[in-house]
Design a protein around this nucleic acid. Sequence first.
DNA 1: TAATTATGTCATTCG
DNA 2: ACCGAATGACATAAT
Length: 601
Amino acid sequence: MMEIELPKMHQSQQEMELIDILWRQDIDLGAGREVFDYSHRQKEHELQRQRKREEEERQQRLQEEKKALLAQLQLDEETGEFVPRAPPSSQQTATPPEKPAVFTEEDVGTLSFDECMQLLEETFPLVETIETSAPTLDPSVLPAANSSPVMMGPQPSPLLPATPPPQKPLPDLEQAWMELLSIPELQQCLNMQMGDVVEPQGYSATSTSPVAQEPNYPFYLPKMTDVITVPAESVCSSGYQSSFEGAFAGAVPADSPDQTTLEAPDLNGAFSVESFCDMFYSDLTDTTISHGGSLGVGGSEGTALAELPEETPVKPMDISEFTLGEGFASKKAEAEFPDSDSGLSLDASPNNGSPEKSTFGDGSFGFSDSDMEEMDSNPGSTKSDYSETFPLSVVAESIQGNSGTLRQPGSSQDQNVGHPKTELAEDAGHDKPPFTKDKHRRRMEARLSRDEQRAKALQIPFSVDLIINLPVDDFNEMMSKHQLNEAQLALVRDIRRRGKNKVAAQNCRKRKMESIAGLECELDSLREEKERLLQERSENDSNLRQAKKELSSLYQEVFSMLRDEEGKPYSPSEYSLQQTSDGNVYLVPRVKQKTVKTRGN
DNA sequence: TAATTATGTCATTCG
DNA sequence: ACCGAATGACATAAT
């Protein structure tokens, strides 16, 4: 997108690096590096071809050797780190050797790959051994489930189940496999290898390192450049094959109907990436999804596989995304924000002319902050220009911090791995409007970095963060150390003011919300108290009524017991009983107010 | 398309 | 008087 133009505009090394980063992200979208730097890419292609050839040769040698003696394969592979790597170009080839490489490195004392192979050969007839590869998949799952939890790794599991059922039902082979598996040593060997294979992938999926592409070869960690250079096909193959090949070299080939008769070594060499992918995906598409593994997702888009390789190398984190195919576009978007840091490029419109920006970038101090504002406010063009002009992010100082946070989007991808299915479903749907949320994010990011853009435009030598967060003294000191023109000073002051005010506004709103929440809470408590008091009052009223009632009955009882000198009862209308503070009760005439002392307490 | 929400910014006030 | 924080009001973008 926007970034594409950058290289042309800025040739500084730093920017080139940034471009690289962007490209890695954009690669997901399907943007070829050539877009950014054609010559560079060509070089990479050449390198790739060379590597491919080398690896192919190596693989051939290995195969021959393997035929002769598997044991040697181990040694060879270990010595040659690239052997495992071979899969990228001709993925298949590496499969058998890979196991040994991984296995042998870590397990010296345990059963060697060669031994395992021998066991297999013993168990199965020569020709079938190869065919068994397909059935192997089925059994492969079993051992994993039984003994090693590692097997549960997202990638292997989906693969395994997918291949076996559709390809070939070979009951005999399965039985044989079961028998083989029953051998504890073999189990151990397989498990370990699976573990090796799976774990790295799982790890890689989350990590940003390119390793993800090459899960099978933990030792082989291609540099970013290497990864990029790897041809799309090679990557694709490596990504997938490596995942299970390590565990069951023969399995994959077996899937392909044509190659059933081939021997394991041949298979490796003969296998073309495309065929492999086709076979694989055709199967996977149906079955894998349930696994939720990244691979399963990929299955949805079998056709896209060819494209995968290109994109995958750049994005280490998601093997799962392979399958997405179209979904890549969306992923691109995600990836973009992260790095695009300023995310300025987001709004970039095709129309945007870079030239104007260049003037900007030159640091035309002419425009003040207010001017900048106007430009920002300007709907399409100006803003986009901005973004284009400084897509790469802010000042070098701030870059690190920002980029760190921004890259977390990578984490988002990681999440994708976690929930590939949903993501994929969404992504796969639309190629053209790949991201709505992305847009939002981008804009948000662009917004955040507005001041950063301005700072970049005026070539402010400080990071925005620094400008905003530095204590007054330090800030003044920093300013004094640099000679800034008026526009720069004004901008720095504005940035600091706005930045602080922004934080203050956020705090203020936060406080306000908290205050509201507190008031609501207080309101609730007051309501509760009111309720309680009302209930209490009603209880008191009822008690009071009861007391009055009892008192009245007592009064009447006492009063009725009183008699005058003649032994007649007093009339309640003429007398009443009253108790004084001292506790004495008197019979008081109601009218005359004449008191007669009846008795004392 | 209008209403709502979130956020940034400015102007002003307060300590 | 100055500075920074706090806050009301407004603008803008997104939902």
